[in-house]
Amino acid sequence: MKMLKATNIYKQFNRLEVLKGISLEVNKGEVIAIIGPSGSGKSTFLRCLNHLEIIDKGVIEIEGETMVSDDDDGQSQYVPEKEVRRICKKMGMVFQNFNLFPHQTVLENIIEAPVIVNKTNKEEAAAIADELLHKVGLTEKKASYPSQLSGGQKQRVAIARALAMKPDIMLFDEPTSALDPELTGEVLKVMRQLAEEHMTMLVVTHEMGFAREVAHRVIFMDDGEIVEEGPPQKIFGSPSHERTKAFLNQIL
């Protein structure tokens, strides 16, 4: 069984076609880096996977469960909202801008969803939060508010917060793009560690070093399509498409 299977995803924003038939299968424990020029639809694709965007057409299955599929007229049909929410809970997401809750402390941010959504009792949730904070190296920031943290610390809290829901798949949308260059390392380190623990990860990134060293597979997207995909050595070493070459030349 695939952890995630997206088939022929189409999405447009007021007639602007942003995804033009994207298909992707992800195995358990696989780390996938999605690269591509700005505006190519990378974020949109990731956001479609956990229902932050509604797709126009296509099929999304998470761990064998269908979240959305085409009906007979080729229109996308989502399963009922409650089901969508249950299926999406298998995925955690980390955003470029963190989206931490500013009115809650670090600890409160992390236990919020376990307590409110999963009805875990507070002590238990706090114990799990402690472990996660230890893991991301922020134990001493437990009582701080997000505004008192650096960007790198915020992003590590955001990762811990997503992990607190015990997802099977983690989606990262340019997790280091909003950070000062000297702060990206601490976030990438946590992500590497997650990869070593065999977390299934989809990472939209401009960090080619990370893609090269950590990803099992690199997807190159351009203009709403997957132009090329393959192991990092292949994509970075001998890309077969002109567009991939042009993109890599430009950024490397």
């Binding site: 956990n50 229902h51 929410r85 955003f95 989206n99 931490l100 959504v117 999963n118």
Partner: peptide, 9 residues
């Protein structure tokens, strides 16, 4: 979006 990604209604 942050809340929704965490499964909140």
């Amino acid at each position: 979006e942050g809340a929704k990604a965490l499964g909140m209604t």
